[in-house]
Amino acid sequence: MILFTHIYTKEMKNNQQNSIVIITRFKAILASLLLGAFALSFNVAVSQEAKKATSKLAFKMRLSSILTNGIRSVKANLSKMEDGKTVSVENLASPIRLYLSEVKKYDPSNGTGLISKAYINREGEGEFEFPDNFNKVTSGMHEFTFIAKLESDSLYQDVEKEVTVSDAKLTIEYNGKDSIKTATACLVEWKGKEYVPVKEGELKLCIKRAFNFLPFGPNAPSTDENGNVSGELPLDVPGNANGTLTIAARLEDHETFGTLEITKDVPWNILPKVNKEHGRTLWSQGDNAPLLLVISSLVIITVIWGTIIYLIYLLTRVKKFGKMP
């Protein structure tokens, strides 16, 4: 096995240069924006730099609606093309505004329908958080049209994107009494006056984990005529530290309902593994060094430096004898 190998590629370097160029451009643009905003005078160089950036950048926005345990949220993903590659938008300074409207009744000019705004993070994602009373206000609604708008950003073009989702509900039941433990999830949608089961929905059963959902049950899950999907839980999977297991049902990126998700904590007797206590080791921090090492080095240091101190005392003796007649 070759242990010590390193790699640098030309491409790597090019890429960095590109990003630097982009950032430099961005710098100029941002500077000019702030210039205007604060109406301050700066040296000519800046404004000249700023003039270079006349056309704004285009980007794509993807909107997705997520309903997690009855709480609705909307996510935006922004991407753009850069040298023929799709990369996420990471330097958007302006917020994206989100409006709620059925059939374009929103009005950005006076703020009608504005329910949230979000800033994009470095991965090009933004999550809109809704007001606390959102559910109450929209309790009568069974179809939601979300419109996300970016307006008058200094760097990017204006973009408007809408997503419409219909009302649907998820429930999950757990049966842990037998030696075989199962879970059943049910998907219903609003049709006319009431909720009715959805057939052939790709409803996945899974266990919530640190980063993602670990699927269990059928390989290609599909709801039956009652909107149900059932699955057997793996019996050896470790649960949460508090003696529960978080089971979940997920309908992912459905064209009518968006993403639906429901979770439920059920009692579970397999605890997650506990990290080994390493105690005093060679790779601990200084205050946690192996005792034998600490003691032996202290002994050695004491002996040697004790002798040195004695020798320095001897020097003072020399001086003392020098003063004696």
């Binding site: 002798t307 020798l311 001897l314 020399v318």
Partner: peptide, 21 residues
Amino acid sequence: SLGWKYSPQQYAVVKKAITIL
């Protein structure tokens, strides 16, 4: 020189120190 005055006591101290060292 630490007030060295070539006294036998001083030599004795120095010799002792050299041995220890």
